[in-house]
Design a protein around this nucleic acid. Sequence first.
DNA 1: TCATTAAACTAATAAGTGTTAGTTTTGCAA
DNA 2: TTGCAAAACTAACACTTATTAGTTTAATGA
Lengths: 196, 196
Amino acid sequence: MAKILASKNGTKKDAITQKAAGLFRKKGFASTSMRELAESIGVEASSLYNHIGSKNELLQTLCFKVANDFTVSLTEIEKKGISTVLKLQEVIRFHIEMMLNNHDEVYVANHEWKQLQEPFLSNFLLQRNSYEGRLVEIIKTGIKKKELKNIHPNIAVLTILSAVRSVEFWQRKKNNINSKELESNIIDHLINGLIK
Amino acid sequence: MAKILASKNGTKKDAITQKAAGLFRKKGFASTSMRELAESIGVEASSLYNHIGSKNELLQTLCFKVANDFTVSLTEIEKKGISTVLKLQEVIRFHIEMMLNNHDEVYVANHEWKQLQEPFLSNFLLQRNSYEGRLVEIIKTGIKKKELKNIHPNIAVLTILSAVRSVEFWQRKKNNINSKELESNIIDHLINGLIK
DNA sequence: TCATTAAACTAATAAGTGTTAGTTTTGCAA
DNA sequence: TTGCAAAACTAACACTTATTAGTTTAATGA
């Protein structure tokens, strides 16, 4: 009868959620069984239900925690009295650091949100659209202030949001590049381009 | 007793594979059952096995078809006697057009390759690493020729390959932006940056 | 020491999984 | 019209799935 050891400053539910994040990332949500999750903890599957509500609840917790982190961060950045370019830099930097520090959770939120059940699915997409819309507004302001060239704001936002996901692949390869170098390269690329 | 109608210039296996691509994209490979796939065609699940080998074979077919298309295209571009910047432009353009013209297949190859079984999984990753390596070489050449600034080639490649995936999101929203505008915006962003 | 509670266990359920075997139907060529 | 092959069908198999009910064990506090 192994016990689920709660990580310090966290409940047992948190410990299970963390393990789930790792498995959901490696194998996908649908391909991860509760028996596998339980085994990775060292317990029977049914024992998990003393701590969590359901498998789907685990996914909900993960997705909305990540979504909320991004929303809160964007609100902070919006409030600052800095240029558009600096705001974009901070947004990009936050995305990269989230992926570096919370790899499993962010990956799962990015890849497995489709498996959310209603009404959580609609809710998640609403939050996502709102986030993208606020980034579009930042870029529109930058164009108006002539800080940015006259690109299509929606395309630019989706390009940036996709580009920062390169950190996913970067984790896969265990290159010894420190996070600051990674950050500055990606930010420079997305803001200034590749041309010499 | 409904019949599987083969699309013109294609076998019935092709028709099933195409339907599978759509479902695998919408629901994920693991969450799509053979009974669902069969129903979407209008046939019993067991009837599918008159035409295909297995569910996993469908995924293999999709993933390697896409991987091969990209490999072939890159070989063509490498052969051309054009500048590094133009080569990169053509690579980016090909990615975007593949995603626009073969949305389901490319999406599935990008998102569901993890569900491949060995030895196909290792094979796919080898092909992918080789593709990325060849792009890294193009960028290294561009730096040597002083066409490109002195960025980290590996980071640049992964940033580009991630950025072109924005087309995935773009399909989701049914904005009325034509593909040429989409292409030129993304290429300009990745080559020249955002700054005015 | 004893009662309480948290959290593990075993066992079972009902539904769904990919796949196979065997049979029947269909459409075409001779 | 008959014979044949392609391709549909039904039925079943052998597992696996998430989850629940009921029970036992371990830890805690009085």
